[in-house]
Design a protein around this nucleic acid. Structure first.
Length: 669
RNA sequence: UGGCCUAUGGUGUAACUGGCAACACAUUGGUUUUUGGUACCAAAGAGUCUAGGUUCGAUCCCUAGUGGGCCAACCA
């Protein structure tokens, strides 16, 4: 019944199955539950994209729930930032909720658990409790307070709530099984005493529920049908379900739907870190200017850098959803932003590393305003005028006194087109006393119909506006900066991740506003930074253009890779390839079978009898493999191998087989 | 007494109920081009971790290995 074979991910399969088993579609409900202890980053967009995306595809509500059970780390600033980021991505939540909304309900349920003998107050120190928990390979042991009476537990727990005890003196634990192989089931903590001001509940509470006790119950209260989280919560599922069963028993009538937790692999990006704690460190240590530094993988950083909501959503879609650990290459993200901006960003001319060009046959006092197309990808984008005059800037990189004919740019005696203007020819250069070229003297030709290889961008010096341009490189020089066991991620920080310089722009950009995006032709996509002021513009480089010219130069790495590939291919022995072919053989259509047969025959030339013989013993069932062996054997015999008993036996056995192909092959010997 | 996940080209994700392993990025060519961009065309790249088993037939189901990941915060 589903639409045209658009393949589903494993979560969608689960939902489809639940729907098929009678879950009503209007019961579907999802949630995104960030802890307001930091800014959202690109990793979160995967979780956001999954839950909100599911909401969109099924027309189901998605709650935004702040998991605010640890007042020591959480702040209103983060709540605001998170809301802003999700809204910016273009997602709409059904309700804005807080785990702290449920503190009373959770407390009431905890009281019931105590009354049922399912929870108890432990009064040992955290060190002792940790010791009793055992290790993953060693069972835990029961503590001395495990069998306190219900009355005593009740009294103590109410005292905890009333603020009668100092922090750390008592905790409430669920009474499950200290010997469970899953450590989370070894009497997990439900409440701790904490005298901290909560950003929403203030000083109302001095006991705060732990994640495990809060999360599933919040899902349940909101009647979330599918609670999606990342893989590291898989071990928590057993506990999630244990708690769920108890509260379900208490409130089944009012809250009929028990939620389901399912886990997916989180997103990892090469050359970046994804831990809020570590990102906070970068901010606090001043490595970056803030959570929204354009080098940060935070949503606000990406936004400031010039990434669009659409590009990020595209990225998340392309990344997919599964359960295995993954590292996504940043090039995919870059592809997505280029693809988006290519369609939407107007083209302009800017020179970032200037060298002066004097057009000697152009009158000194003359200027012309030439027409330039804003965006050839967008017919509605229109045209603008750019000024041309005798003295212009081009990029230093675009000129060489001498160069081979693979260099399409300007060289002495060579011609090149100035984008939107004339064709110029370089005649001579002016050098300073160090021998550096300071000026290039050219003549121009009004005939623009001529074919020339290169087209350069440029700006008229007299008309250009100068601005600050910030170019970024990756923040870390290591592919996986936080995976090294000995070195801290801080040691891999790229000291040259920010490069600031002055750029010269065509005057049409004089009035730009913060956030506007452009393609600086031949250079990349740039946007106007938040720091920008009308008289002191600041641009960020979002991403460069694909540059197949730059790639031509150095590539030692590729060679290495190729070598490795070739080696591993060579190492794969002919016999194992034949075996592989055999596995599939009987399954192939006739045409392909012939081809594979030819391949096997070819490969057999480099197979020795000693390699082949062990395969004679292949199980009778594996007809394909035996056929492949038979084909191979035929070649060996043809090439002078002498028959022996083992061979004869193998052939005879094959002749009696029920597989016709095998019989045919055997009888041909 | 350890438990639970997981394994498909360089990367990521598919392959529906077992039936010729597909798509995207990256790579390499080519065509077009007033961006060495875009667009278009093409090529190359895995035979699905290993060993068994079930089956006419296994990436898919079963068993056992091996590799990787997660779990021992009064964090979430």
């Amino acid at each position: 019944m589903s639409e045209e074979t658009k393949s589903l991910n494993f979560i969608e399969h689960i939902i489809e199955e639940d729907l098929a088993n009678g879950l009503s579609k209007d019961k579907l409900r999802f949630r995104f539950p960030p802890e307001p202890n930091g800014y959202l980053h690109i990793g979160h967009t995967k979780a956001i994209g999954i839950s909100f995306g599911l909401g969109e595809t099924y027309g189901a509500p998605v709650n935004l729930r702040f998991d605010d059970t640890n007042p020591a780390k959480e702040e209103q600033e983060y709540v605001d930032a998170i809301k802003r980021d999700i809204a910016w991505l273009g997602y709409k939540w059904e309700n804005e909720l807080y785990s702290s909304d449920y503190f009373q309900k959770l407390y009431d349920w905890a009281i019931q658990m105590i009354k049922d003998g399912k929870a108890y107050v432990d009064s040992q120190s955290s060190e002792v409790i940790a010791k009793q928990k055992g290790t993953p390979t060693q069972v835990g042991t029961n503590g001395p307070y495990r069998n306190r009476s219900v009355e005593e537990n009740l009294d103590l727990f109410q005292g905890m709530k009333a603020g009668e005890f100092p922090a750390g003196t008592h905790i409430l634990r669920a009474k499950i099984d200290m010997e469970d192989p899953n450590m989370l089931m070894r009497d997990p903590m439900m409440y701790r005493i904490m005298y901290a001001n909560h950003h929403r509940t203030g000083d109302e509470w001095c006991i705060y529920p732990m994640y495990d006790w809060t999360h599933g119950e919040s899902d349940y209260l909101e009647q979330i049908s599918h609670s999606l989280c990342s893989l590291e919560f898989k071990p928590h599922r057993k506990l999630y379900d244990w708690f769920k069963e108890h509260v379900y028993a208490y409130s089944k009538d009012k809250l009929p739907l028990p939620p389901k937790q399912r886990e997916f692999a989180r997103l990892n990006l090469s050359y970046t870190i994804m831990s809020k704690r570590k990102l906070l460190r970068l901010v606090e240590d001043g490595v970056v200017t803030g959570w929204d530094d354009p080098r940060m993988p935070t949503i606000s950083g990406l936004r400031r850098r010039g990434y669009t909501p659409n590009s990020i959503r595209q990225f998340i879609e392309k990344v997919g959803v599964a359960k295995r650990e993954n590292v996504i290459d940043v090039s995919l993200l870059e592809f997505c932003i280029r693809e988006d901006l290519n369609k939407s960003a107007n083209r302009v001319m800017a020179v970032l590393d200037p060298i002066k060009v004097v057009i000697t046959n152009y009158p000194e006092d003359k200027e012309e305003w030439l027409e330039a197309e804003n965006n050839q990808e967008d017919d509605s984008a229109g045209f603008r005028k750019v000024p041309f005059s005798r003295e212009i800037y081009i990029e230093k990189e675009d000129f060489k006194e001498e160069a081979g004919n693979k260099f399409f740019r300007l060289k002495l005696g060579g011609e090149v087109r100035l984008k939107n203007a004339y064709i110029i020819k370089a005649n001579s250069v002016v050098k300073d006393d160090k021998g550096e070229v300071t000026e290039i003297h050219c003549t121009y030709d009004e005939d623009t119909s001529k074919k020339v290889k290169g087209t350069l961008h440029w700006v008229s010096i007299r008309h250009a506006i100068s601005v600050e341009v910030r170019e970024y490189d990756r923040l870390f020089s290591h592919e996986a900066p936080d995976s090294n066991k000995e070195k801290s991620f801080m040691e891999f920080i790229n000291p040259n991740s920010l490069k600031v310089r002055t750029g010269y722009l065509e005057p049409s950009l004089a009035e730009v506003k913060v956030g506007e995006q452009f393609q600086f032709q031949r250079l990349g996509y740039f946007n106007v930074d938040d720091d920008s002021k009308p008289d002191a513009l600041v641009f960020n480089k979002t991403v460069g253009l694909r540059d197949s010219w730059a790639k031509q130069k150095p590539k030692p790495q590729n060679n290495n890779q190729n070598k490795n590939k070739q080696q591993s291919q060579q190492q794969r022995s002919a016999i194992s390839v034949i075996q592989q072919f055999g596995k599939k053989y009987t399954n192939l259509p006739e045409e392909k079978q012939l081809k594979v047969k030819a391949d096997i025959q070819e490969l057999s030339k480099s197979v020795s009898y000693d390699e082949l013989e062990p395969l004679f013993g292949t199980a009778v069932k594996k007809a394909g493999t035996r056929i492949a062996v038979m084909i191979s054997l035929k070649i060996l015999l043809k090439n002078g191998l002498e028959r022996n008993n083992t061979i004869n036996e193998f052939i005879e056995k094959a002749l009696e087989d029920k597989n016709e192909i095998l019989v045919t092959e055997a009888s041909e010997i």
